[in-house]
Design a protein around this nucleic acid. Structure first.
Lengths: 113, 113, 113, 113
DNA sequence: TTTT
DNA sequence: TTTT
C-alpha cells in the first residue's frame, strides 16, 4: 500500500517480439522499445536522443504482441518497473531493469487490434 | 518526436540522499526509492512486494532533496527512464537504469516544502 | 481500442465522502478533491491556485472511502474522465464532468489502509 | 504544493481545431477529443464506449495544432483539468471542465511534426 | 535500504 | 469545500 510504480511509454519496437511458451498456456513476449525526443540546443540546432527500454508482456498481452506487433510498430505501453538480478557467466551479480506491461495500445493503422 | 518516456512513483527513500556538487552551482542528488504493493494470493493471504528504484535529481530539485528529504520520506516522483552503460573494474560493459526526476511532491507532513 | 483516458490527482478531500447504497451490495462514494499548485509571478510573488474535482468511487473503493476517508484526507486517485448530461429543473441539458476512480492510495499516516 | 493534477488522453479530434488570436501574438486552439474503449459484456459481446473531452491549447501548442491537426487526427495529450464557471443567457451559473494541454504527441504518420 |  |  501507499506505493505507486507506473511507467508509460510511446515508441517503436526495435525488432520483432521474442515469444516464449514458458508453461502450458502461458506465453511471454519480450522486445526493445525506442522512445525518441527532440530538443533544441543553445544554438537552436535540433538534436534527437533515443532511450531503449526492455518490455516484457505476459499471457493475453503476449499473445496480442505475437499476432500484431513487429519491428517498427508504434505502441503505447503502460506497466511497472522491475529490477531483477541474475548471475553472469563469471558468477557476478548483475541487474536488469524491465517494464512489465499491463496495457498496450497499438498506434499504427496497419496493425490490427 | 512521437515519443513518450514517463515514470511516476510514490514511495519511501531507503536512505538519505547522496549529494554531489559536480560543477560550480550544479548539484546532483541520488537515492533509492522503495515502492511497495500488497496483493492477496489464491488462499487469501496478503503478500507485500517491494521494488527499488534509483532516482537522480539535478539542480533545483537536488537542492530541494538536500534540504527536505531524508531516509523514510514519502514522495511522489515523476521523471524519465534512462539506461546508462559503464565499464566495471574488469572492463566489461554493464548497465544501470535510473529515473531522472523532473517533478517531486513531498507527501510527509513533517517535511517542509 | 486506440484510446486512453486517464486522470491522476493528488489532493485533499473538501468534505466527508457522500455514501449511497444504489443496489443490493453496490456502494457509491462521492466527494470533492482539491488539487493546489503554487507558482511565482513575474515579480517573484507566490500565488496558489486550487482546482476542484468531482470524484466518484464504486463498490470496493467506495467501501474503502466510507471506512477511511474524511474531510481533509490526502489521497492519490487514478481514474477516467466521464462527462454526463442531465436535465436541470427547467428541462435544459446540462453537463458534469466526473472522475470515476479505479485506484486510490491513502497518503495520510492517520488514515489506515 | 502537495498537489498533482494530470490528465493523459489518446484519441481522435472530432473536428478541426477552432483557432483564436486572443491578443497580439497569443493563439488559443480548442477542439473535442474522442477516447474510445472496447469491453466485453457478460455474454462475450464487444461494446465500444466513447468519451468526449474539451481540449484547450495555448501559444506554441495552439500554433502547432493550427498547422498540423485536423478532424480525425490521432494524438496523445497531457494536461491539467480546469473547471470554469460562466453565466448562461438566463444568468444561471454553469460549469465546463476543460483539459489545458501542456504536451502533444502527434500519432498519425500523415501529420507532420 | 523504506513505509504501514 | 481541502491542505501546507
Amino acid at each position: 500500500m501507499r506505493g505507486l510504480n507506473k511507467v508509460t511509454l510511446i515508441g517503436n519496437l526495435g525488432g520483432d517480439p521474442d515469444i516464449q511458451r514458458v508453461q502450458e498456456g502461458v506465453t511471454v513476449a519480450k522486445f526493445s522499445l525506442a522512445t525518441s525526443e527532440s530538443y533544441k540546443d543553445a544554438k537552436g540546432q535540433v538534436h534527437t536522443t533515443t532511450d531503449w527500454h526492455s518490455i516484457v508482456l505476459w499471457r493475453g498481452l503476449a499473445e496480442l504482441a505475437e499476432k500484431y506487433l513487429h519491428k517498427g510498430s508504434l505502441i503505447y505501453v503502460e506497466g511497472k518497473l522491475k529490477t531483477r538480478n541474475f548471475e553472469d557467466k563469471e558468477g557476478a551479480k548483475r541487474y536488469v531493469t524491465e517494464i512489465i506491461g499491463d496495457q498496450i495500445i497499438m498506434l499504427d493503422k496497419r496493425d490490427e487490434s
